[in-house]
């Protein structure tokens, strides 16, 4: 540790770190304060304490519907993305095959597509599919939640892989082999040994994919059709006068909720990982 910084250097780094934390959190805290401000203006001066914005959004059916849609989309897309991610990670870690680097490149490529371009590309895809189906079979699928889910799975998949692969690399292949030798078939080995060991990474991946999807605007804005999700609704309200304080109130709740969720999951994951590390060590020693 001494090699990395002198005492003064260390102090400066600590100060820099906390300054950055202030920079990151001050605007968020500010919004929290304004969610209790008794005025339709989100501006100073502060006009007194109120809870009415919190009451207001609870009775706003459009907002609640948007929240519900986001929850459904995020649940579906994170589940699919992580399931696909587990498969892909397993192959990437446990298998050798031709064109492996090309495949892994493709699997990770959504990481670097600007969401704007991808959203538009999906919009165009649905347009092309619908044109074809309408002309041939008279079917019209259109846009909507299914389209958002499809898009979010694509962009969440690389994150799922990046979260699961390192964990899978840590799991000793010998444990899986042991399971096989004890007569478990491939599926059983996977279900009884690999998957439990993977659980912390799977939970992390689900969480990342869920939060990514829940808050995603750019892709959703192009393919949502009439199924406005929470960020889309929020965006539309940001630009008109009346809805703002309500939006801030609900966002503060979502924000606090997601912070609690993230921290809780992270703590839980670390605990589980420590537990597993102990078991693994015991396993190897035993």
């Amino acid at each position: 540790m001494q090699a990395a910084a002198s005492t003064n250097g260390r102090r400066s780094l600590v100060a820099f770190y906390w300054l950055l934390v202030v920079f990151l959190y001050a605007p968020i805290l500010l919004l929290m304060i304004f969610s209790f401000n008794d005025s339709r203006d989100v501006a100073f001066p502060f006009r007194g304490f109120t809870l009415r914005w919190y009451h207001a959004f609870l009775t706003n059916p459009n907002l609640l519907a948007a929240l519900r849609r986001s929850a459904i989309v995020a649940t579906a897309s994170s589940a699919i993305a992580v399931a696909l991610g587990v498969l892909a990670s397993f192959v990437l870690v446990r298998r050798r095959f031709v064109a492996k680097s090309a495949v892994s490149g493709l699997l990770l490529s959504p990481l670097v597509i600007p969401y704007l371009v991808f959203g538009i590309a999906l919009l165009i895809l649905f347009r092309a599919v619908d044109t074809f189906l309408t002309n041939t079979m008279g079917i019209y699928i259109g846009l909507g939640m299914h389209a958002i889910v499809i898009g979010h799975v694509v962009v969440s998949l690389p994150y799922a892989i990046l979260t699961i692969v390192p964990r899978l690399e840590l799991i000793d292949i010998a444990l899986e082999e042991a399971g096989r030798d004890l007569g478990a078939n491939a599926r059983q080995t996977f279900r009884r040994i690999t998957l439990p060991l993977l659980t912390p990474a799977v939970v992390s991946a689900l969480l990342i994919a869920f939060t990514l999807s829940f808050d995603e605007y750019a892709i959703a804005s192009f393919v949502a059709g009439d199924a406005a999700t929470y960020p889309i609704y929020l965006y539309s309200q940001l630009r008109i006068r009346a809805g703002l304080p309500q939006m801030i109130a609900i966002s503060v709740l979502v924000l606090v909720g997601s912070m609690v969720l993230v921290v809780a999951t992270e703590v839980g994951r670390r605990r589980a990982e420590r537990q597993l590390a102990v078991e693994e060590t015991e396993g190897l020693l035993g």
Binding site: L30, L234, M247, S251, L255, M259
Partner: peptide
Amino acid sequence: LTSYLLRVLA
């Protein structure tokens, strides 16, 4: 991990 739009709004 918190709302992007809201952080912009702030």
